[in-house]
Simulated scan of single mutants.
Amino acid sequence: MRAVRLPPPAPVDNLRLTTLPLPPERDGWVRIRVEAFGLNRSELKLRLGLSVGVTFPRVPGIEAAGTVDAAPAGSGLVPGQKVVAMMGDMGRTYDGGYAEYTSVPLSQVIPVDTDLPWEVLGALPEMVQTGYGSLTVGLALGPGQSVLIRGGTSSVGLAAAALATWRDATVLSTTRRPDRLALLKEHGVYHPCSTPVKSRPLYASCTRTVSTPPSTSSARRPRRPRGPARPRRSRRAEQGDARAGHAPLAAGQRADGDAVSGAGPARAHTA
């Protein structure tokens, strides 16, 4: 089979198209005929040598879409069935999706019933998993709640918006390009927000769309004026004063005995 293989971490030119043996059938593993696979930032980190626990040479790819070529007895999978696979050290400790065939643990395989073209289906697994995991495990988003999605026109942002709408949540999404606001509306975003300049507050244009602006503000509140800080003295120094017969300093009193104008009750101050 043909596969893209990476020797030890190196520039992108070191990704080589090569010929490798077909992965053998293994108990508890599914061999997939790969039709499409997505590109992920994880693979960039792997190529740069920033991933932990990776062995080389390696066929990268943490996701793939295709059909079952061989499956364990009793798995419920049949040859030719459409499936996707992702994560679980795929493309890290065993060869991943950058190949015509890949073999992955049964637990990493998800059957799918879809008429989507392969080039679309191949881009979904990790993208949808990221959006779904963020909304459910990360936020426990429920019906009637609201969620703000930064970078709403990215692939993960659009997937998260669709999933949040499916969960009956109110979706706000941001984009730096005002010409993409209509795109967000088309994908079910209830409140598209434009933030074209990085220095603008987070809700710069959302407040013109949402009837009740969020109470959160990115602007800092002014600090209240403070009185002069009491000179810091360690507990050891105060114990030494007590042994020497000196009374500890009172609030608003300097070591020379003079009062400090405007001093309030003793309190801890930070610089």
Rank of each mutant, 00 (worst) to 15 (best):
F37K: 04
L15P: 08
W29F: 01
P24L: 09
R177P: 01
L172Y: 14
G152I: 10
D113L: 14
M90V: 10
A64Q: 03
R243L: 11
D69F: 02
A159S: 10
R232M: 11
R33Q: 14
D241W: 13
I32Q: 06
R236P: 01
I32P: 11
D95A: 01
D256C: 15
P57R: 05
Y190P: 05
R176A: 13
R31A: 00
P143R: 05
L172G: 12
L135C: 00
Y98F: 10
R226Q: 13
A162I: 04
D256P: 15
A159V: 04
R267G: 06
M90Y: 08
R92S: 13
A219K: 02
G133Y: 00
L163F: 00
L116H: 12
V260S: 06
L124Y: 09
L116V: 14
P23N: 05
P117L: 09
I149R: 01
E238H: 07
R33N: 12
E35K: 14
A250F: 05
L135F: 00
L249Q: 11
E63C: 03
R224T: 15
M127N: 13
P72Y: 01
R176N: 05
D179E: 13
Q129H: 13
A271D: 11
L181Y: 04
S217V: 09
R226M: 13
K185D: 14
T114P: 10
V156G: 09
L20F: 03
D241C: 10
A36V: 13
P231M: 12
G80F: 03
R58C: 12
G264C: 10
L148W: 00
L135K: 06
P11G: 13
